[in-house]
Design a protein around this nucleic acid. Structure first.
Lengths: 189, 189
DNA sequence: ATGCGATGTGAACGGCACTAACATAGCAGC
DNA sequence: GCTGCTATGTTAGTGCCGTTCACATCGCAT
């Protein structure tokens, strides 16, 4: 091992996170291996433990970056339907990362970036209510939470190949548009 | 090993499925171990391979039974809100099983029991439209799919402890009722 | 009664997450 | 510049995992 120039890697922590993302993109969450990440970074399998307490800690750091990327994607979107499309598309394009982000963690802590993403959704809902894009008699918070649940369920079911038959296999944007339209009567404009 | 009466177990296949459910209920999907299942059934770690091609095959059989239980629960529920509450409650009461049922399987096949569950949802949506419980301008199929996505997202997010703060930590029935109400304007009656 | 197929065993393989003891190097204070 | 502390790396090992293979046992049809 250690066929790199210097004994110390220099930026191992980020290299491990990047490598982990790579593996998640190639093979998915269930196939993820900490040893494989170390191998790709060109270090021993014990090295990651200098930067992360365990495998799950690394995955949490990866998830954190995922939340930031998702929040950015949602920021870029315009309109409620656009935001919904961006949410489902993120899951579509980064399925392994998406699963990692929302894996069930018994004692999982909250994520600052996750909060930011929800904040963006909330603002979009308020804007949609003000512009008349949607009509909801419930509070913006409840409406936002409900739409989030819908988008999240859409994203998760979309990743399930066997459920393609229910019409959940189409393009993310179309999926989000038709679904939000069916529930809220939003126009795809 | 083999401190049971007869050399052959007699009903090992079902015992393995039951044991797997037990482990999922106790420790969750991520902690599931095939060796542990064999140990609980009192057989060697190689024995399960006489009944299942691999670990994933056993989990699929477990998931199939889960789909049947879920379909039964949904059948028993009355009204769209009742059905939604039953869906989220199922996830709440059997989180490990729920995760196993909807884990991302690359080449996963469809489940007959899963179809039945969706059929029940579809009928409930049609009934709700006819009784005036909800007003949707979309087709029953699209509406049912959209509601399914909402309920599924609600269930998944409900299992995420860190997201309790968004109000997703309450009772399953209340969660389903307020969410469906916010999106469709259904009355909690 | 026999023998064949179904079902279970024990021992092995490689891979995994993780740990402990040790090696190297960057850097701060003298 | 030398010294030594601390951060960061390695090697070797532990125990568990999923899976396979050769072999043992037994139920059942002929």
């Amino acid at each position: 091992m250690a066929d790199r120039k210097t004994y110390h890697h220099g930026a191992l922590r980020q290299a491990l996170i990047d490598g982990a993302k790579e593996i998640l993109a190639e093979s998915g969450h269930e196939q993820f291996s900490l040893n494989e990440v170390a191998r790709r970074a060109g270090v021993s399998t014990a090295a990651p433990y200098r930067h992360f307490t365990n495998r799950d800690d690394l995955l949490s750091a990866v998830a954190e970056e995922g939340y930031r990327t998702l929040a950015d994607d949602l920021e870029k979107a315009t309109g409620l339907v656009g935001l919904g499309g961006a949410y489902v598309r993120f899951a579509h394009e980064h399925p392994g990362l998406f699963v990692t982000m929302f894996r069930s963690r018994p004692g999982g802590e909250a994520s600052a970036a996750g909060e930011a993403a929800f904040g963006t959704l909330l603002r979009a809902v308020v804007a949609a209510q003000e512009s008349g894009e949607i009509v909801s008699h419930a509070s913006p918070e409840l409406t936002a939470r409900s739409i989030w649940a819908t988008l999240h369920g859409l994203a998760v079911l979309h990743l399930q190949r066997p459920h393609e038959r229910y019409g959940l296999g189409g393009e993310p944007e179309e999926l989000a548009a038709t679904t939000l339209s069916a529930l809220l009567g939003v126009k795809p404009g």
